[in-house]
Design a protein around this nucleic acid. Structure first.
Lengths: 205, 205
DNA sequence: TTTTGATAATTTTGTTAAAAAAGTCAGGAA
DNA sequence: TTCCTGACTTTTTTAACAAAATTATCAAAA
């Protein structure tokens, strides 16, 4: 029934929104199903009516976030006048995405290496979209004749994204943390912009 | 007394060698002082006569390894005809160092983030030496007029080393492991050489 | 000066009980 | 039939504490 599904969708949305707020503020492990239900003035059992379990609820929220991100990438594909703009764009929105959802990713910090498969799926999806946008920009730039021909744009962009990902901020000596602290994100962002500048020039004739 | 010190040094060496074998095979936490002493048919107390504690024993082994590495770096400082050779050299010997002591660093993989401070000290030392060699090469290259002037060579090299460090090999989808597996080291090595090529070109006029 | 057995001190591991949170279900309301 | 809940069960986390393993010390012997 259409009406029933509408209502269900609205309810699902409410749950996702409340869950997002909890996860964002307290992180995955310090958010309980009771608290989410409490925020919505509903019973915990109802959450289980709409979502099979806690982790899949988290994943649903994650998917909602990533969809916004993917949308931005899609909307901006092939809209850049040059390669550098494309990279700067990617770095900027990625930075923005991480900053505004920082605590939400406690889940990643916590589970480190053994994240549930659906999470990896989403991560892969996002990566593909970034790859797509950027390798498209590379191809365009090659056609314009500003940079040298690239035999495998995907592999090149993958390489550069890895390099960007490697940018960290070291503490006093060398204790570079695996996941950057929130207070380091701006510095990392600045460094990435510096790095991409070198990249682009390195690709030119 | 010279003779006494000689003997002491030999003994210390024996202990370091036996310890290295244990650490290499089982890692730090799964190696006991009793086992090391047993391998050498000496009492555990004697180990404490030569080394103040376990962690400093591990450090000593680590330092022995890193000293070889540092020596190579020192010996080759200012011996490069161009910047690229310097980077290729750094990437090569770093690769070689990791490959030949791969299992020794199980310790790093296992303890991940909470390594004892003195270990970080050595890591910092090695990093400084790499930084030194490479930023020297940058300065030389600038003087030769092949690349644009660099305001802060140290920061530039630090950035590039971070970028190189970011190079990983992804599995099927995106499950990139934090520490590269041994079978991926060659591929990573190749990718780094690719990347540094772009770097160098990006620094040129 | 070098070495050790005995022993003290500390850390890790294992056990268990209580508490907290996840997850289920029969049945009621809309 | 769909949506919802209170009461319930199961699983996970936490805390306390004892046992075991390991690090570290030291007086005394070689």
């Amino acid at each position: 029934m259409a009406a029933g599904n509408d209502h269900q969708d609205i309810k699902r949305e409410k749950i996702l929104e409340a869950s997002y707020q909890r996860f964002l503020h307290y992180g995955y492990s310090k958010t309980t199903m009771n608290e989410i239900a409490g925020d919505l003035s509903m019973s915990k059992a109802l959450l289980y009516y709409y979502f099979p379990d806690k982790s899949q609820l988290y994943i649903a929220v994650m998917r909602k976030l990533s969809n916004d991100y993917l949308k931005i990438l899609e909307d901006n594909i092939n809209t850049f006048t040059n390669l550098k703009d494309a990279f700067v764009f990617q770095i900027d929105i990625h930075h923005n995405f991480i900053v505004s959802n920082y605590n939400f990713f406690d889940f990643f910090r916590l589970n480190e290496q053994n994240l549930p498969d659906p999470i990896w799926e989403i991560v892969g999806q996002v990566h593909s979209a970034e790859l797509n946008l950027l390798s498209n920009a590379v191809k365009t730039e090659v056609e314009r004749g500003t940079i040298k021909p690239v035999d495998k744009p995907d592999e090149l962009v993958d390489l550069l994204l890895d390099a960007l990902h490697g940018i960290r901020v070291g503490a006093v000596s060398q204790k570079k943390t695996n996941f950057p602290r929130k207070e380091h994100l701006e510095e990392i962002h600045a460094k990435k912009l510096l790095l991409i500048d070198i990249f682009i020039k390195g690709l030119m004739y």
